[in-house]
Structure formats: C-alpha cells, structure tokens
C-alpha cells in the first residue's frame, strides 16, 4: 500500500489498470474500499448483535436452563474448530501481507491453506451437526433430551448462531476461491487491487464472531 500511495505518480500519465475512472488515485480507491468493508463489518456486528441480545436476555432470565443445555454441546469439536479458525486467521493475515509485497507464490499458497482450513472447519461442523441430530438436540424433536423449556431456547440459538456463522464461512470460502483462481490466472495486480485485503478483513470478522460464539455455546456450563 505504501507503494500505491507514493506521490510520485505524475497526474494520470500512468494509470494503473486497477484504478477506476471515478477515483483520483489508488490511495483514494484503497481507502474507499477499506472503509466500505469496515462499515459493512459494523453492520455485521449488529446483525449478530440481535442474536446475542436474544442470548443475553434468555441467559439472564433462565441461567440454570442455559447452563444445563450448553453442557450438551460438543466441546471437543467446538474447540478444535476454534483452533482451525485461528490458524486460518493467521494464514489470511499473512496472505494480505504477502499481497501487499507483491509475492504471488506466497499469496497463492497462503490462500490455499486458508481455504483448506475453512473446509476442515465446515467438515467438523457437519460432523458435529450429525452428532447433534443423532442426540435429538433440535427443538422440534419429540425426543428432545432436556426437560426445562428454556433448553429449547438455547438450542434454537445454537442452530441459528452456528448456522449463520457457517453461511458466513461459506461466503468467505467462495470469495477466497474466486481470488485464488484469479491469483493463479494473474488477472489482477496484487498491490493495486484491494480484493485480497477486503477478503482478509471479512475473514478476520468471521474469526471474530466465532471467538464469541465459542464460549457462549461450548464453554458455558462446563464448571459443575
């Protein structure tokens, strides 16, 4: 980015092909893209915030029911998934760094690893869902194992939170997939285009949400 911001560009004599016509220079364009994504992330915080507000209200109203219900989640898979996401957060952050330095091989590899970790996350999540369904841990099941009615509230929140998070992972993986394809095809400039930084920011956010979902759904109710 420092490279793009260098003031040595003499007017528009050499326009980067990445520069859209309504922007004055690349620095302005990058600032717009970054700010746009940060604002979008603020909306995402509030999107999940509605769900967390519901969790907060019910956890305060029914602490016992929530502690009991939370003890039924698959903590091992949940914790492994936390580790997977944190690792993918590292590789994504490094990919952004490498892109800023124009290191195409390194970017390709790091994005591929990020995608791999994301896929393993989804695989683990799928296995966990399968176990949950096997244990009748869904609110409409006639054999729902927990007696207290608020347990069903907890499990409704569990499915909604993890489901929406998984959708975000899927969107992120799709984005990374397209970018990986374009990186291999060399169809865009690593330093002039914002897309890797944008995808990295989004992926960081997906990480961030999991950091709160994980304690709320998996670590809750373990100290007995």
């Amino acid at each position: 980015m420092t490279e793009a911001a260098a003031p040595s560009t003499p007017g528009r004599a050499i326009r980067s092909p990445a520069l859209a016509s309504h922007f004055h220079d690349l620095r302005q364009q990058h600032a717009a893209a970054d700010l746009g994504l940060w604002i979008f992330l603020a909306t995402e915080i509030l999107f999940f915030g509605g769900l967390f507000a519901a969790y907060l209200v019910y956890a305060v109203l029914y602490p016992d029911g929530f502690l009991d219900a939370a003890a039924e989640t698959e903590i091992v898979i949940g914790t492994i998934n936390t580790a997977l996401l944190l690792t993918s957060g590292l590789t994504a952050a490094l990919a952004v760094k490498a892109a800023g330095a124009g290191m195409r091989r390194s970017v390709t590899m790091l994005i591929a690893v990020t995608i791999g970790l994301g896929l393993v996350f989804l695989g683990a999540k799928g296995y966990e869902y399968w176990l949950d369904l096997d244990h009748h841990l869904y609110p409409t099941s006639p054999e729902f194992p927990l007696a207290a009615p608020p347990a069903k509230l907890f499990w409704s929140l569990y499915w909604t939170m993890t489901g929406l998070h998984a959708i975000h992972i899927l969107v992120g993986l799709g984005t990374w997939g397209i970018i990986l394809f374009q990186t291999v095809r060399r169809s865009f400039s690593l330093t002039d285009n914002s897309r890797i930084r944008i995808a990295g920011l989004y992926w960081g956010f997906v990480d961030l949400m999991w950091l709160f979902i994980w304690p709320l759904l998996y670590l809750m109710g373990r100290a007995t």
């Binding site: 490279e3 793009a4 040595s8 980067s16 092909p17 990445a18 330095a101 124009g102 790091l110």
Partner: peptide
C-alpha cells in the same frame, strides 16, 4: 508504481523478496 503492464509483474520489489515463500 511505474508499471506498464499488469501481468507478470508486481511492483519493483527485489527479485529475492518476490520469490521467497513467506512474507
């Protein structure tokens, strides 16, 4: 940013830097 073509070249980084596997 003195780049005439977009493909194949990513800035004027030192060659060694571009080839190294990790940032």
């Amino acid at each position: 940013m003195s780049r005439a073509t977009q493909h194949g070249r990513d800035g004027n980084r030192p060659a060694a830097d571009r080839r190294s596997l990790l940032p």
